[in-house]
C-alpha cells in the first residue's frame, strides 16, 4: 500500500510531472510565476481542485454515461473551481486578488481534465485522491521552481524578501513572459537530463523511433 502511494507520488513529481514532462497547464504557469508566493497559491488551488474533482469523478464513474463524460467532468471541475475561488476570496483575499483572472481559469487547465479522464474515471476513490495529491504536488513543485528562479534573479527577492541586497541589478527579462518561456525551457531540459530519457533509449528503440519519423517525412537519413 505504502509502496503504491510512494510510486504514485514519484510519478506525479518526477516521471509524469504535469508541467515539466507532460507540458500541461503552461499558460497559467507562465503568467503567474512572477513570484514564489503566487506560484504557491496557484499550486495549492490547482491541487485542491484536482483532489476534489478526482474524488467526485471516481465516485460517479459508474453512473456517468460514456457519451457525456467530458461534459460531466467539466461541470464537476468548474463547480470545484468556483468553490475554491469563493473560499480564497473569503479566507485568502490577497491571494485571490494576486491570482486574478487565472483563478477561475483553472477550469480550463488540462491537467485536471486529463487526470479525470485518464485516471479517476477508471480507479477507486482512494487511489484517485492520491493521484490528485501526487499530480498537484508535481505541479506545485514545478511552479515553485519556476517562480523561485524568476523572482530571485528577476527581482532579487524571495517571498518579497530581498536576497542579494540593493547593489543587485535584476535581470528584467525573467520577470516578463519571454523570461518565463526561457526558464521553463531550461527546467524541461534539466528534467529530461535527470530522467536520462535519451541515453537510456536503447538502440532498437532509437531505430524504431527514427524509422517512424522518417516515414512521416519529418527527417531524412543520409545514405
Amino acid at each position: 500500500m505504502f509502496k503504491t502511494i510512494l510510486k504514485q507520488f514519484k510519478e506525479g513529481v518526477f516521471d509524469k510531472n504535469p508541467l515539466l514532462v507532460q507540458i500541461l497547464g503552461v499558460c497559467a504557469s507562465l503568467a503567474i510565476t512572477t513570484s514564489v508566493s503566487n506560484a504557491l497559491y496557484m499550486g495549492l488551488a490547482v491541487t485542491a481542485v484536482l483532489v476534489c474533482s478526482n474524488l467526485f469523478v471516481s465516485l460517479l464513474r459508474k453512473f456517468i454515461p460514456q457519451q457525456v463524460r467530458i461534459a460531466a467532468y467539466i461541470v464537476i471541475i468548474s463547480g470545484f473551481v468556483t468553490i475554491v475561488e469563493m473560499l480564497m476570496k473569503a479566507y485568502l483575499p490577497s491571494a485571490a486578488e494576486k491570482l486574478g483572472i487565472f483563478l477561475p481559469l483553472i477550469v480550463v487547465n488540462c491537467i485536471i481534465l486529463g487526470r479525470a479522464e485518464a485516471y479517476a474515471s477508471q480507479n477507486a476513490p482512494f487511489p484517485s485522491i492520491i493521484d490528485g495529491l501526487a499530480m498537484g504536488a508535481g505541479f506545485t513543485i514545478a511552479l515553485l521552481l519556476l517562480g523561485a528562479i524568476r523572482e530571485l534573479f528577476g527581482a532579487g527577492t524571495l517571498f518579497g524578501i530581498s536576497i542579494f541586497g540593493q547593489s543587485y541589478t535584476p535581470i528584467g527579462i525573467l520577470s516578463s513572459p519571454p523570461g518565463a518561456f526561457i526558464v521553463l525551457g531550461c527546467l524541461i531540459a534539466l528534467m529530461q537530463y535527470l530522467k536520462k530519457d535519451c541515453p537510456s533509449m536503447n538502440s532498437t528503440q532509437r531505430r524504431k523511433s527514427q524509422s517512424r519519423m522518417s516515414k512521416q517525412g519529418r527527417i531524412r537519413h543520409d545514405p
Partner: peptide
Amino acid sequence: SLPLVVICTLMVALIAAVNHFT
C-alpha cells in the same frame, strides 16, 4: 441526460452551501 442533470444539481447544491458560509 439524467446523470448530467443529477451532477449539475449536486454541484449547484455544493456551491450554494459553500456560498452560504463564504
